[in-house]
Amino acid sequence: MAKITLDIFRFDQAVDDIPHRDKVALEIPETITVLDALEFAKAEVDGSISFRRSCRSAICGSCSMNINGVTGLACKTPCNTVLRSDGTIAIDPMPNFQPMKDLVVHMDPFWDKYTRLKPYLQPPDRDEDNPTERRVSPDDMKKLVEVANCVMCATCYALCPVVSVDPAFAGPAAIAYAYRFVEDVRDGQTKERLGQINDDYLWLCAHCYACSYCPKHVEPHDRIVDVKRRTVQESVHMNERGPRHALVVNKTIKQTGMLGETEVIQGTVGRFNIRGLLKVAPLGLRMASKGKLPPIFLRPIPKVDEVRTIFESLEVPTLK
């Protein structure tokens, strides 16, 4: 038994203007999970403490919350792994969401991101009445099972810095779900799906890896890279900035062994997009005045052949 104090964010949208905090002192085994500790506090001390939970085995995705500053599943977090030296655990609702009551948040924006994807199989043939299963190789299925482990807990969404500045961004979980259909050999809407996820600002992902802290090992970040790659391979949205940026970066490195920043800006914005170029012009002038303007033409580095060999062996798609 250990003395553990839960320091809990309290708020009721119906009556409170601002949140406050309550400290609840408990005597519990320190190996129990944070969820068990909350249950204990609710049953024995204060019945009004509110949180979502269902499975208590990391499979329903209900109980994600912020525990000592890190978002994660309360039912998968033993108290002794997060306990501060003063014996407290601070518990807050997930960031990037509107609180409703205590640790319960409004999840609707998160679910909306899925709805926009048309998240259901759309096979090319209407063979729903076919009496046998479609044949799918074990490997093609295994790829999907890894993503199917996602329990829609929104931990990744809560951790994503891009979501916090631009709520229109699909977010890691929905992109991983898009991947699940894009990579499903039974689905017939690959291009439309890639188009939709591009419309939902796929390329805003900053590759910060915050979402790799996924409790179910879905690795949404890697799925995002996969979806971007597929976007380029399938030549979807090639006129958008995201894919063009990726490709022009590739191109300059392949040609010169260095990042050709001037060309990257032109390539991303569009060489003939006068208005777009004018927008970035002030930045260029400011850089020039500080002597930071990158060279307009780059001379290839000495052993650029080796760089090119790397590119060729990786079969990186090229800008057409």
Partner: peptide, 23 residues
């Protein structure tokens, strides 16, 4: 069997045998 096929046609991710049928 009909219900399993129904689920499969709607995208359910079943593990597979080497020949592609449901394991």
């Amino acid at each position: 069997p009909r219900q399993i096929i129904w689920l499969e046609h709607r995208g359910c991710i079943f593990s597979r045998l080497p020949d592609g049928r449901i394991a």
